[in-house]
Design a protein around this nucleic acid. Structure first.
Lengths: 229, 229
DNA sequence: CGATTGCTTGACCCCCATCAATCCTCGTGG
DNA sequence: CCACGAGGATTGATGGGGGTCAAGCAATCG
């Protein structure tokens, strides 16, 4: 359970890989490890996180509640990602909620410790900076898609994104247990609309569905739909 | 024109305020100043910026072209803001385009010089980090609004946002010359839809319109509309 | 002072949100 | 082992929001 950060392969996947051996040893001493079951909440909107989570395994959704009462999935987090970087930088409470979608294994590194490294290790800081910049770019892309594309286009886009990031090998289902409601909350539509479109994609043999399992069959055509025929 | 950064008040408004006197002197020596007329383009999507712009005066829109061919305004930039921070961090071309909305006065600081400070001055780096974190949070909010709210709600929200950031004093028009098309491109809708809603807001005495000049009359009611009655 | 650009309004129709009913698939307890 | 209930998946019906085309109107500019 409390394995050592210096030996953890996961750190190679994110900014923690920039830390020195000594820094990692210190982090190892203060981090905590936990298993999070599917459906359980890592942190709530409005909560002070005061640290970062490093995802060793599993997937979680990061959501925000709209004033109209519906959850919107803002991004998906998987093995190797960090969550909660913003809590290191600002003193505010989290504006987002994180919920496990598959069973997860995560480490939690308290803010006061990791902030030391942020102040002293420039490589680490620059790496975090790069992460945020990438997230920002992706967020901008999502904004444009949400604002300009139809639900059908967004669904096609989302499926392609899921295939790219969560399909381990061709002809295998996606390695992420999304409910239809989750899918609707990614593309920002009613669950029924998402279901209807999924069925139509199934009929056109673009995807294959078995319960929650999704197999993507025809990425090319999906790509065309995503870009508007 | 080529005033000295150490004496420029604008730097207090952004991360450049974290630089030391010596650093500012160096930046002063390599920066260039320029006036950008309304409608002129600061940089294009796909262009390598290789530096940051510091906005001394005026407003510009930052847009991204959707695959369907319509521009989406991702954010508005005003006096005191920096644009192009991302170019310092990533080696990629810009994913966004910047166009002046009002006449502008901007300074351009080349990447190779400012990156030195990013590597050596931790306060500066942390300040940039904070900026990006804030932008990311705001982008998340926009995603949720785009995905979940109606065009009417988004227009009300946008008007309130504009009032907050661009109305110098009560009962004065907004200090930003937005066309109806711009407004439509902020809220992600057709120009005609935006116009129609603006007219209805005008009839309900929530706002007042004189050409491009917009006066916000009733923020309370707009707030209610933005949050869904 | 035409001419180009932006603003405004009307008409039309499709996409999609919503409500509702049914079916399916589990996990749980009798 | 089955019955049952609860939550998820699916399909139908319906109405309104908003995208699109089109035609006037105002304003700005060379």
């Amino acid at each position: 359970m409390s394995s050592r950060c210096e030996q953890c392969i996961i750190r190679q996947l994110n900014s923690l890989g920039e830390l020195t051996k000594d820094e990692l040893l210190r982090i190892s001493g203060c981090k905590t490890s936990q298993y999070v079951k599917k459906g359980e909440v890592l942190f709530e909107e409005g909560q002070y996180i005061n640290g970062v989570f490093c995802v060793k395994d599993g997937v979680c959704k990061v959501t925000k509640m709209s004033t109209n009462g519906r959850d919107q999935i803002v991004k998906l987090i998987k093995k190797g990602d960090l969550i909660g970087e913003r809590s290191l930088i600002s003193e505010e409470a989290s504006n987002l909620k994180a919920t496990a979608i598959n069973d997860m294994e995560v480490c939690f590194i308290p803010k006061e410790e990791i902030v030391k490294d942020l102040k002293s290790n420039n490589n680490f800081t620059m790496s975090i900076l790069k992460d945020l910049a990438t997230s920002l770019k992706e967020a901008d892309n999502v904004i444009v898609d949400m604002a300009q594309k139809t639900v059908k286009q967004r669904l096609a886009e989302t499926l392609l994104h899921l295939k790219k990031n969560y399909q381990v090998s061709e002809d295998k289902p996606l390695d992420i247990q999304l409910s239809r409601e989750d899918i609707a909350n990614i593309i920002g539509t009613a669950t029924e609309s998402a279901i209807r479109l999924l069925s139509s994609f199934k009929k056109e043999k673009l995807i294959s569905l078995k319960g929650k399992e999704i197999y993507i069959l025809d990425p090319q055509t999906l790509q065309q739909i995503a870009e508007g025929f």
